[in-house]
Amino acid sequence: MSCAAGEPCEEGGRRRRALVVLGLMGAIFIVLSVASFLDSRGQVTPVSVSYAGFDAVQGKRVFQAYNCMGCHTIVGNGAYFAPDLTKLYGRVGPAWLEAFLPSAGSWPTSTAVALQLRDAATAGEAGAASIDAYLKKYPAAAERVERRGGHMTLMPNLPLSRNEVRELIAFLKYSSAMNTEGWPPTPRVAGLAVAKAALPAAQAATVPAATATAPPSATQRGADLAQSTGCMACHSTSGERLVGPGWGELYGSDVTFTDGSSARADDAYLTQSIVDPDARVVKDYVPHVMPAYAGVLDAGQVADIVAYIRSLQGGQP
């Protein structure tokens, strides 16, 4: 205490009063804290949220296991490197997330999103059966598909399993339903309106050039289809494995399956792999990651894509 001897000392009393006020503050803090988590507050809890039968709590474990917060933010906390995820589910919807997450290195095309809607559970969660209805209901998904579909993202591909994808979506469904007291603030201007208006003009300019040439070969049609369908989100044209095997060294190679059997990657095998990929799964690959394209692509289109893969033999397009 800084009191000289002989003077009346008020320091001790002051200090005691400060400690009493501190105790009061602690009491206020405890009362506020308890009030924050009462059921009557009506805040959504992860236990009450599920997506297509998958659990949001399990999704939070996946979210933490991949340290998503190390790039993204959630409720505004995290690394500011990648977008905030709190309200993402409500904006882009489940089908877009289903298409995006397994091959995060690439933006989903509308075909890739449409493919996810063929799953009754996803369509049911989305509340839209057709791709048109879906993109109308989730304009943020439409925006991403239109402006970036088929292009590379800045996010690395993660080895997410089919279940992990759905658990993550359950978690994002939960965070999206949370009451965050008005954060993030809703913008008053549509900043994209300007950029969107400029975009169709640029696309229109490239169309006449394409029609001026001779009718495309099967290989060319296959390449275009692979691009628009979204195959290139998971498959490279070289030998490099992204999510699925690279196409460059695929045709004619020997592949071994999870059951130990093996086969030559010929037309028949590739066709089956596209139409029904889970029939035979190659060793070191996870089933249910690649969607089945039966009913999405007709036989002719599948043949075109197989022709394209054949043309890539040796890594040269």
């Binding site: 905030d84 201007v189 549509a190």
Partner: peptide
Amino acid sequence: RTLGLDWFG
């Protein structure tokens, strides 16, 4: 927050 471009498009 003002332009609403909150994804890394």
